[in-house]
């Protein structure tokens, strides 16, 4: 994997709230789901940035908001110095050639009524780039992602899950984008199939100099594909570090809990492992806890901090900043820990 270059996508203080409405005719607004709260990061040229978190952490909403598929409540997203927030659908369209997305569900994201060749040709047609060479181009895209080009006139339902995800990838690549958002691209696939799709994505990223924002809940996948990883919890990034460092010395108690919760396919290591088990479930994003959002489940808060130390967790939101560990972490009492 080559070294990442200049930032192509800048995200600053991105906020996305969804209104919660009352039942009945009036449907008064009674609150907000705080899906994404002040997320900032850069995605560099030729880089895979992983966005990892459990359900409800806001990772998918972040990804969709970046591409203007959702309107952000506030904050800014810019692509090569061009502000994306506030652009109309029409203004956004030319930019879609450079910013593409692969969706999670390979069953729902492909039109069942048109052939696979047409699915892949559609973005080319929309952008007026489907010419005499178009058919050959689609063939080449099919071959690129490991499908037989002769199967181009088949329909999506004739393909397996892994093959469908490859079709989704071919479609996203048709316009030769610079940035591709991958929203849980392998989570619906069996492990033997998943590996092939991961290899494909890594080849494409490295050879075509793409920038990937890779959204996933699986930390093992992250370790394999990402250059840097941002860990999200309840709408906020709690830690952002180069992959190797994040796994070698995680500093945020949540990252530590996540890493220690993932089972290793190695019986001896697995039995000898130290577990940090967090209590309870993720609180509701309608009324997230004050101060540090992880404090209600934080093992450090529960067992290691004194009463006066806890005050900071309850009253002050920890900023995502370098606290002497070398990488940004959003914990007042961050401390690196070796777990693997």
């Amino acid at each position: 994997m080559s070294a990442p270059g200049e930032p192509v996508l800048r995200v600053r203080d991105l906020v996305k709230h969804f209104p919660v409405r009352s039942r009945g005719v009036v449907r008064r607004k009674i609150g907000d789901v705080h899906a994404v709260c002040g997320v900032s990061f850069d995605l560099h040229e030729n880089e895979t940035l992983g966005l990892v978190g459990e359900s409800g952490s806001g990772k998918t909403t972040t990804a969709r908001t970046l591409l203007n598929l959702e309107r952000p409540t506030s904050g800014s997203v810019s692509y090569r110095d061009r502000e994306l927030t506030g652009l109309s659908r029409r203004q956004m369209r030319p930019l879609r050639e450079e910013l593409q997305i692969v969706f999670q569900d390979p069953y729902a994201s492909l039109d069942p009524r048109i052939s696979v060749r047409d699915i892949i040709a559609e973005p080319l047609r929309i952008h007026g780039r489907y010419d005499e060479a178009g058919r050959a181009e689609v063939h080449d895209l099919l071959r690129l992602v490991g499908l037989n080009p002769e199967h181009g006139n088949r329909y999506a339902h004739e393909f397996s899950g892994g093959q469908r995800q490859r079709i989704g990838i071919a479609r996203a690549l048709a316009l030769r984008p610079k940035v591709v958002v991958l929203d849980e691209p392998v989570s619906a696939l069996d492990v033997s199939i998943q590996a092939g799709v991961l290899n494909l994505l890594m080849d494409l990223q490295a050879e075509l100099g793409l920038s990937f924002l890779f959204v996933a809940h699986d930390l093992s996948v992250m370790r394999h594909v990402a250059h840097r990883v941002a860990v999200m919890y309840l709408g906020r990034i709690v830690e952002l570090a180069p992959t190797r460092e994040l796994f070698a010395r995680p500093s945020h108690p949540y990252t530590q809990a996540l890493i220690s919760a993932i089972p290793l396919p190695d019986p001896r290591k697995e039995r000898a492992r130290r577990r940090i088990v967090v209590q309870g479930d993720v609180p509701s994003p309608i009324s997230p806890p004050s101060g540090c959002r992880f404090r209600t489940r934080c093992p450090k808060f529960a067992t290691q901090l004194t009463e006066s130390e806890r005050t900071a967790c309850v009253e002050q939101t920890p900023e995502l900043t370098d606290r002497g560990t070398g990488t940004p972490v959003a914990c007042h009492y961050a401390q690196p820990l070796e777990l693997l």
Binding site: V191, L219, L264, D266
Partner: peptide, 15 residues
């Protein structure tokens, strides 16, 4: 085929 969290694999081998 399994990506491993505890080591740097060079490359996965899908089936």
């Amino acid at each position: 085929s399994m990506p491993r969290m505890d080591r740097d694999d060079d490359r996965l081998t899908p089936i």
